[in-house]
Design a protein around this nucleic acid. Structure first.
Length: 565
RNA sequence: GACCUGGUAGCUCAGUUGGUAGAGCACCUCCCUUUUAAGGAGGUGGUCCUGGGUUCGAGCCCCAGCCAGGUCACCA
């Protein structure tokens, strides 16, 4: 491993600490009794505290020094004074251990007393300190000036995502995003539990990947000798539990889809799905807006949120508009009662790209996606989707061409999708078969498996049920004003880092070295000529050899000589 | 998948027809006992993403590749 100068210095400090009898990685519990936040909130002069954290900045002024300690709650200033720490003659603990052998990033425990400095900063006067863990790699060190400008911010997304641990240490606003993320999950869980709904777990490895149209990841189970798929949705399993007699079940589901990655798609993402018996999609709309209003308040303290240029408000109730009305509003075209040919012509006239394989439902969806979707900034329910796009959804009670389905749009993106669930087993079987036919024809969006076990479950009878799925990553993006899903995942998927290339000699370098070995030293021009290499190649070769201390170039009386080392 | 932009010190970034690689911070050595982007003096530190090519000479120009970000396409 190639170490930088800074890393070598820190390793040397490690040795010096051990020579002084200080274990840089002690095992013992450290009796922390305050956090930085508690100190600031309940500040009392001369109160004794024991705290621990990372050393994040230092201002050394001879025999005294101010530093900042960062713990999970924030930062607190600590004051190291030589004669406070070293009461006797031996000043090693301050002069050497603190000033020379500690570094930014080290974990330190501090026992001290609170006081306020002349400039009014709440500070811990260090009486004793303990090195708890030495950091061997230097952290980036962003700093904030008096005007609040951040200098040397650690901003490169690649480095931040690959080394999220460093990102979290030095970028407090990043940590805040994840605190809010967990608050959102807790809020939602709380909302459901208070209403008596039951959190469950269902299989992630599935013999049939169902509940959505998406390409799955495949793996293989050795003992069973069968392929298993990582789940793309948990819908079919949750409905089996409704069949089994639960009133309401929900699950936060890690789903996996083997598709493209961009700033709104990660191969694994988190959805929440909930199913409640004896309800319909109208009930679910009210439930959804109450839920989101509650969650927004729990996360941000307000129903309002900023997303890019948009101000959005999650306060219930949200407008509802049917898909047909939405299309009429934004295109002046009324799809009601129109034939497939008429709709295709309308789409072409509107400049929406279509082809002949598209059915009526798909055409409507294309028009909506192209012309309407982006217009819904404030939370809005779009209802009553065409039947052929929704194979798991119950037919609309008033119109057999539609389904009882809604999606919630925010800032032009879908964040929730809900149905009055299809519970007619014969209808469900026919819809699966229709999907299978589409798949056989080559429609890669159609589901290519029939889950017969799910149909068997429906045949035992499923009560009328409404279900809803929420994209948790999307939702937290809106609540924290992040345009990229990577900013709301601790560890977004990245291409593997390139392996560090081993220092090895290539053929040219070996040849030059062989030539040199015979004669020990040779004028550079002569060696270059013998090598027969191009200028650039020669340059690279000789530099590589000298850099690895295999050869040396010396200038003797205006002539460059290459010597073997 | 296509196109655009970027990759230089631990971090943030400069880098002029193509002519000895720079700054601030960090780091190291010294001075400094209530500072706060502490200050002062001196110093160290580089695979200029990788591999080819053009050239007397490439961080810079050309080709190929890798990685990232963005736009679009595809996809929930």
């Amino acid at each position: 491993m190639q170490l930088s100068e800074l890393e070598l210095i820190r390793r040397e400090k490690l040795n010096q600490l051990r020579e002084l009898g200080i274990n840089p990685y002690p095992a013992a519990l450290y009796p922390v009794n305050h956090t930085s936040k508690q100190i600031k909130q309940n500040f009392e002069e001369e109160k004794k505290v024991t705290i621990a954290g990372r050393l994040m900045s230092r201002r050394i002024q001879g025999k005294a020094s101010f530093a900042e300690l960062q713990d999970a709650q924030g930062r607190i200033q600590v004051y190291f004074n030589r004669d406070e720490i070293c009461q006797g003659e031996d000043k090693t603990l301050y002069n050497d251990v603190y000033k020379k052998l500690l570094d930014i990033g080290d974990f330190v425990g501090v026992e001290g007393e609170l006081f306020t400095t002349q400039v009014g900063e709440k500070t811990v006067m260090v009486k004793n300190f303990t090195l708890l863990s030495k950091a061997l790699k230097p952290l980036p060190q962003p700093r904030v000036d008096a005007e609040g400008n951040v200098h040397d911010a650690f901003t490169d997304p690649e480095q931040r995502y690959r080394q999220r641990y460093a990102d979290l240490v030095v970028n407090p606003h990043v940590k805040e995003v994840f605190v809010k993320r967990t608050r959102l999950f807790n809020a939602m869980r709380n909302f459901f539990n208070e209403r008596g709904y039951f959190e469950v777990e269902t299989p992630i490895l599935q013999p049939i990947p169902g509940g959505a149209a998406a390409r799955p990841f495949v793996t293989h189970h050795n003992s069973l000798d069968i392929p298993l798929y990582m789940r793309i949705a948990n819908e079919l399993y949750l409905k089996r539990l409704i069949v089994g007699g639960f009133d309401g079940v929900y699950e936060f589901s890690k789903n996996f889809r083997n598709e493209g990655m961009d700033r709104t798609h990660n191969p694994e993402f988190t959805a929440m799905e909930i199913y409640v018996s004896y309800k319909d999609y109208n009930w679910m709309m009210e439930f959804c807006e109450e839920l989101l209003e509650y969650c927004a308040i729990q996360v941000n303290g307000t129903t309002e949120a900023t997303f890019g240029e948009h101000k959005i408000d999650f306060k219930a109730a949200y407008p509802r508009i049917t898909m047909a009305d939405a299309i009429k509003k934004y295109t002046s075209f009324d799809i009601t009662g129109k034939t497939e040919a008429e709709i295709r012509k309308a789409a072409k006239d509107l400049g929406v790209p279509v082809d002949d394989t598209m059915g009526k439902g798909k055409l409507i969806d294309e028009i909506f996606g192209e012309k309407c979707e982006g217009n819904f900034i404030q939370p809005t329910f779009i209802t009553d989707y065409p039947k052929e796009m929704s194979p798991l959804c119950k037919e609309h009670r008033d119109n057999p061409e539609l389904t009882e389905r809604f999606e919630l749009m925010v800032c032009g993106k879908e964040i929730a999708n809900a149905y009055s669930e299809l519970n007619d087993p014969i209808d469900q079987r026919e819809r699966f078969e229709a999907q299978l036919k589409l798949a056989e024809k080559g429609d890669d969006e159609a589901t290519q498996f029939i889950d017969f076990d799910f149909l068997r479950a429906l045949e035992y009878g499923m009560p009328p049920t409404s279900g809803m799925g929420i994209g948790m990553d999307r939702l937290i993006m809106f609540l924290t004003n992040n345009a990229s899903i990577q900013e709301v995942l601790f560890f977004p998927q990245m291409r593997p880092e390139k392996k560090v290339v081993q220092v090895e000699l290539n053929e040219e370098e070996k040849a030059v070295l062989e030539t040199l070995k015979k004669v020990e030293k040779l004028p550079l021009e002569e060696l270059k000529a013998q090598s027969g290499l191009s200028n650039k190649k020669w340059d690279k070769t000789i530099k590589h050899l000298t850099a690895n201390k295999l050869a040396k170039v010396e200038k003797i009386e205006e002539v460059l000589i290459v010597k073997l080392l």
